[in-house]
């Protein structure tokens, strides 16, 4: 999975592309650092091209969510595919994030 981050008007948008499985999780943890460092801002995760997510990926997103709560930032998830969205629903993670 690739993760490209751009910043515009104080909002950081990260585009997730590919499969976020256990094998991809360590690299994503590295790539997420820029978002962790900016967890006091508006963060957007674009999941249009995210074809797969497992619990390894969810754990990293939970860490980011906790960081934004600690620093008074926020995260919005956009363009999520139905298959990925249901993983958030099943695990109760859906209510922890804002979806658009």
């Amino acid at each position: 999975m690739t993760f490209k981050v751009t910043e515009e008007n104080g909002t950081l948008t990260g585009v997730m592309d590919g499969r976020l499985d256990t094998a991809a999780a360590p690299q994503f943890a590295e790539d997420l650092k820029i978002m962790m460092d900016n967890a006091d801002k508006h963060l957007v995760l674009d999941m249009e091209k995210l074809s797969f997510i497992s619990s390894s990926g969810l754990r990293l997103l939970l860490s980011l969510r906790k960081e934004t709560m600690a620093k008074n930032g926020d995260i919005t998830i956009i363009n999520v595919l139905p298959e990925v969205k249901q993983v958030f629903t099943i695990t109760g993670f859906y209510s922890l994030f804002q979806f658009k």
Binding site: S54, K66, V87, T91, G92, L96
Partner: peptide, 19 residues
């Protein structure tokens, strides 16, 4: 796994088996 907890209270373990 308690899916009703808030982000602060959620723990990272057990999600795989839960799914």
């Amino acid at each position: 796994v308690d899916t009703t907890l808030s982000a602060d209270e959620r723990q990272i373990g057990g999600l795989g088996i839960f799914l």
